[in-house]
Computed example of a mutant assay.
Amino acid sequence: MKLRLLSFIILLVSILPVMAGDGSSAQSPLTVSQALAKKNDQKSYYVSGYIVGEYRDYSNNKHFYYLAPPFDGTSAYLIADDVDEMDLSRMMPVQIKDYVDNYNLDENPQYWRKQLTVKGTLTDYFTLPGIKNLTDWIAPAEPLDDESQYWNFYETFETKKAYTPAGEQMYSGGTYTSSETCRWEFTGATYGDSSNDMKWDNAAAHLRLTQSTSGEPGYICMLDDKTDGIGYIRLWTARYKEDKGAASFGIFLSNDQGESWETVQTDIAIEKELTEYQFKIMRPGTWRIKIAKTDPSTNGINIDNIHISDYYTPSAVTATSTEATTRLWGTQGTLCFEASQPVNLRIHTLDGTLVSEQHIAGHGSLPLPAGFYLVSTPTSTVKVVVR
């Protein structure tokens, strides 16, 4: 009986995304995976997903985007079904040009990792299946906790003069003294700013072997403690452009100033192209990290754009408007509501001017001029767009 029940639960979980909605209304939105399956059919649907980052640009056959702070405040979100999604092929860019002043992640980072529902046309956007020409926008419920406050460690290895080689041999190692984060020890590694180094901007750490073509696998490690714990570790890596064979890397932690190292994950296969990886650690205390090449081959690897968040509890800050007993959204000339029980509603403009105060219950709508509003109940405040 237990086996049959478990099989039913697994089956139910597997079909839930398919049952999520048909995209015809804000109460029945498509998931991102459902929208992707529509293959840019040029029709308009409601789609709901987590705001996992922002899309910056597409240039020279390369996608430029950020999935963690610092953000630029571009006019395109990236949304996904999983709040921790890292795979661009499972995300959709959303054109937010009409909403960018009030919702861009640079000035409004509290919306990062929160749920958004929009209505728009499924169409090609930056060569990806995307959503454009929005006609409805249902923002996350406020007040919102800003998760970006925990993401203050961001290493880019951009400053060449910060790297001091330990000797004349390229892979003899050295020290990188970052103005952004901390000091880094390079062993079997060097500063990689050549045309063959796989990097985001000007440079990346280049790991190989301690004797270039022999010796131990190279690594970089922190020479200073991170005292606010470790939540997530995110980094980009790829094989050195000229090296054709396989390569792998691993993540290691130390809470005794580098005297000993604990393996978090090892022998992770590295792709040819720059790929972002995430490791969910969630440990309080004082730590250092080491990122190491874990295969003995002479193939080089690049490491770039390392994000390390403080220790925090994401489940406490990712509550979405779907948990509220009152659902609010804007349409053409009206504020729509769905209240499971009677509630008092206060509608303000963004500058704080009270527009209306209502007592609502059940399903209904209220006429409002086009604009942005803060709509409050006794338990939450939602920013609503009326077109």
Rank of each mutant, 00 (worst) to 15 (best):
R4E: 15
M19E: 12
P29C: 02
V32E: 06
A37N: 15
K39G: 03
E54Q: 07
Y55Q: 11
Y55K: 09
N61P: 00
H63L: 05
A68L: 03
A68M: 08
F71M: 05
I79N: 02
V83N: 00
M91V: 06
M92F: 07
K97L: 12
N102P: 01
N102D: 14
L105T: 08
P109V: 07
W112F: 15
Y125M: 13
T127K: 13
T127G: 00
N133G: 12
N133W: 02
W137A: 11
I138D: 10
S148L: 00
S148N: 07
Y150T: 00
W151K: 09
K160F: 09
T164G: 05
T164P: 02
P165N: 05
G173I: 08
T181K: 05
G188K: 04
T190M: 06
Y191T: 06
D193P: 02
S194A: 14
N196H: 11
D197E: 04
D201S: 14
D201T: 14
N202H: 10
A203D: 07
G215P: 07
P217T: 04
G218K: 01
Y219H: 11
K226P: 01
Y232R: 12
Y232W: 08
R239S: 10
K244F: 10
K244M: 11
S248Y: 13
G250Q: 05
L253M: 15
W261A: 03
W261Q: 04
E262F: 11
T263F: 06
T263R: 11
V264K: 09
I268K: 11
I270H: 00
I281L: 03
P284Q: 14
G285K: 05
T286F: 07
W287M: 08
T294G: 04
D295Q: 04
I303G: 06
I306M: 04
T320P: 04
G330I: 00
L335Y: 08
L335K: 02
F337K: 10
A339G: 05
Q341G: 03
P342G: 10
L345T: 04
R346M: 13
I347D: 05
H348R: 13
T349L: 13
G352S: 06
S356P: 03
Q358D: 12
I360C: 05
H363V: 11
Y373K: 06
P378Y: 10
V386C: 05
R387N: 14
